[in-house]
Amino acid sequence: MADKAASPVIMRSMLGQVRGLGSAKAGTAHWWAQRMTAVALVPLTLWFVCAVIRLAGLPRAAVVDWAASPLTATLLVALVLATFHHLQLGLQVVMEDYIHRDRPRMLWLLVMKAAAALLGLAALIAVLKLAFTG
């Protein structure tokens, strides 16, 4: 017992320790992606809100002019990608926490991910169309 106290028994395999996998059977990719998109969204959100305030009440032509600039288009693409990636990661955690039965959880996760992907793609196509034809 004295020996055990001096060097505690590590229950995980060496491969398990290297991979850093815990009881969730997954690594840190999800957690890390959620944080990275959050950090990216801090400046992008500030920029977007300021931009929308300046466009408020203006006709469509003003929005098209604004979105046609390569700088605006770049930031809009970044905003759309970060927003929809962050959103589906967050909703996934909420669904995993509150939908306890396997089949409904899998179903709702698939529905949510499909909806997030399609909405994100629609926003992306709109931004690219404005960038290339605006």
């Binding site: 469509r60 929005v63 098209v64 979105a67 809009l76 759309v80 927003t83 929809f84 959103l87 909405l119 629609a122 926003a123 196509i125 709109a126 931004v127 169309k129 404005l130 605006g134």
Partner: peptide, 12 residues
């Protein structure tokens, strides 16, 4: 984000 997508798609 539905509103954001609607706004962007409408502008395009």
């Amino acid at each position: 984000t539905l509103l954001l997508v609607w706004w962007l798609v409408a502008a395009a």
